[in-house]
């Protein structure tokens, strides 16, 4: 698949606030990150990683998967609640609930 992804120019599009030290920076495009976790994911997704970087990428992905499971559980509950609330609201307004 041809790559059509839009690109970011780190020199122009990122800025580190004064007095803040950058925790992690991409060794390929010099993009700064607030966490190593984000940098590891970025390197694996956007560049051609070395073996060590790939390992870090895999482990970051693993952690994402666990967090994502919890997030999705919340999202599904929120969807269910929204759906039920909307139906009940319509029943109330249209007069067949009370």
């Amino acid at each position: 698949m041809t790559d059509h992804a839009p690109t970011l120019d780190p020199a122009r599009d990122t800025a580190v606030p004064d007095g803040e030290t950058v925790v992690a920076r991409c060794p390929y495009c010099r993009r700064p990150f607030r966490r190593e976790h984000a940098r590891d994911l970025h390197v694996g997704e956007r560049h051609d990683p070395t073996d060590e970087e790939r390992e870090r990428y895999e482990s970051a992905r693993e952690q994402e998967r666990d967090d994502l499971w919890l997030f999705h559980a919340k999202a599904v509950v929120a969807l269910g609640v929204t759906y039920a609330a909307t139906v009940i609201l319509y029943m109330a307004v249209l007069g067949s609930f009370f």
């Binding site: 999705h72 999202a75 969807l79 929204t82 909307t86």
Partner: peptide, 23 residues
């Protein structure tokens, strides 16, 4: 269906579609 409910439903649909896309 009163106007306020139509408007509210629109907001719910957009918010709901966001929750869907997070999946």
């Amino acid at each position: 269906v009163p106007t306020w409910l139509t408007v509210l439903t629109g907001g719910v649909v957009v918010g709901g579609s966001f929750l869907f896309t997070t999946l």
